[in-house]
Simulated scan of single mutants.
Amino acid sequence: MTNTIIEFKNVTKQYDNDSPVLDHVSFEIERGKFYTLLGPSGCGKTTILRLIAGFTEASVGDIYFDGKKMNDVPANKRQVNTVFQDYALFPHLNVFENVAFGLRIKKLKESVIKQKVQEALTFVNLAGYENREIREMSGGQRQRVAIARAIVNEPEVILLDEPLSALDLKLRTEMQYELRELQRRLGITFIFVTHDQEEALAMSDEIFVLNRGKIQQSGTPIDIYDEPINRFVADFIGESNIVEGRMIEDYLVEFVGGRFECVDQGLNPNEAVEIVIRPEDLEITTKERGKLKVKVDSQLFRGVHYEISCYDEDQNEWLVHSTKKANVGDEIGLYFDPEAIHVMRFGESEADFDRRLEAYDHGDAHEQ
């Protein structure tokens, strides 16, 4: 049996004469993993969820579930359940009846319903809450009720449409850990939608980064963060310093007037490139030791580090995350290791980008 449970083949979704919400998207989802669809508002991530759930139909292309085409399969016949942003719980029903709702529609025996509901509530740490009214539940508890209602039907895939967005920061962080642990214990596929980069990095086995109706890049959180494929991904995932440069040869790149060793290869000699260095990979040091010489423009204390904004002689801004303090107006040096430099191709056409993205999805461009 193949490990692929969901597959999109050249799927486009377009409403009337508007631009496509999804534009010829292809990808595969494997069993038992935690996937995150990440991107800004309007990028197409919720549309993917709705297509999987059967709430909307593809304009072009095919969607497969367990190798079987599911374009025309109605939502209630699909082995998926959705946890919505507002949880969509019934306020007039208690916790037990909310979780039991789908089982009653299936007309299961009362003894079976009771057993399954109790098992689901125990799984989400809500045993003993069966008779509690929904209005008496906290935000985190309501989310657990919604998840219990989803898992009680024993789906093969659970879809989660920004279910943490209404929670405060502390509870949201706690629920990230709970959701991840729940997915591991269940061993089923979770597909999670968010626009929060930190949330995606913390929870996912694999992330799909979307923009303008296309998957810009897919990979593990480490791959996405350390090896962004283009400026959008580098900018959207975390914070980045991005400057223009030139690839001299393999393992040697030029930017801001200097030549620096790097670990990238496979680009053309003298090719125009963009350089990415993450703020936490820059070390504050003396001007003599620094590979870059900059002047401190501002400094903010962020609790675990200082966020320091600097400018070099060419007025390129450099953002630094450091436990060291630097005073506004100081002239300092910035040091970085070759591994801190990530090189991206610069100035390619849309067609070139699409071809390279296709190659990347097949694993051919990972070493760029």
Rank of each mutant, 00 (worst) to 15 (best):
Q183E: 03
A166W: 02
E181T: 15
R142D: 02
G140S: 12
D161R: 09
E178K: 08
S138P: 02
T194A: 07
R172W: 01
A148R: 15
A166G: 00
T194W: 08
L167V: 07
E154T: 12
G187Q: 06
N211S: 13
S165P: 13
L169S: 12
E181N: 15
L182Q: 09
L164K: 12
K170P: 09
V157T: 08
L159A: 12
A166C: 04
I188W: 02
V157G: 05
S165K: 08
N153M: 14
E178R: 07
L169G: 03
D196I: 01
L169K: 14
K170M: 01
I191H: 12
R144L: 04
H195E: 07
E178A: 07
P155M: 13
Q141A: 13
F192S: 00
R185M: 09
L160A: 08
V209I: 10
H195R: 14
E206D: 03
T173V: 15
E178L: 09
M137V: 07
Q143R: 08
F192K: 05
V145F: 05
A146P: 06
P155S: 10
F190N: 12
Y177M: 09
M203V: 10
A150P: 04
V193K: 00
E154R: 14
L159P: 05
Q183C: 08
P163W: 05
D196H: 05
F190S: 11
R180S: 10
H195T: 11
G213I: 10
Q197A: 10
R184E: 01
A200E: 13
G213P: 05
G140V: 12
Y177C: 09
E181D: 15
E181R: 15
E162T: 02
A202W: 03
T173A: 15
E198S: 14
R180F: 03
A150T: 14
E206I: 02
L179C: 04
G139K: 08
L159T: 05
V193P: 13
S204G: 13
G187C: 06
G139M: 08
R212P: 00
N211I: 00
L164G: 09
A166T: 11
E181S: 15
A200T: 00
L182C: 10
N153V: 15
I191F: 06
V209N: 08
A202R: 02
E178Y: 06
E162K: 02
A148K: 15
V145T: 12
L186C: 10
T173L: 15
S165Y: 14
P155C: 14
Q197N: 13
A166M: 10
D161N: 02
A150F: 10
N211T: 06
L186T: 07
L179P: 04
L160H: 09
G213W: 07
V209L: 11
I207V: 11
T189S: 02
E181P: 05
A200C: 02
L182T: 15
F208R: 04
G140E: 09
I147D: 05
A150G: 05
P163N: 10
R144T: 04
T189N: 01
D161A: 03
M175I: 04
D205W: 03
E174H: 14
M203R: 12
P155F: 12
I188F: 04
P155I: 12
A166S: 11
R142Y: 04
R180L: 03
N153P: 01
D161W: 05
A200G: 01
Q143I: 06
P163M: 10
L169V: 14
E156K: 15
R142P: 01
R149C: 00
I158F: 04
